[in-house]
Amino acid sequence: MRSAIELKIGEKAIINDIDNTNPSARRILEVGFTPGEEIELLFKPVFGDPLAFSIRGTLIAVRSSEAKCILI
């Protein structure tokens, strides 16, 4: 399964699962990254990390190490 950090800028995907082994999994879920939701990778700023995703009508920036647990 791919993870959200492998998305290209402008690419959309549906969340399949959240990897519960990542320590940030719960916070990721709480801010709205739940299975079935559509996400889009929108921005990677200067240093390439964190990544800005569109989720549930808002923009959320997440470090790659944490976004790794969003499986698509």
Partner: peptide, 11 residues
Amino acid sequence: EKSSFIIELPT
């Protein structure tokens, strides 16, 4: 301790 950066980018 886990280091975290999850932040909402407001409108």
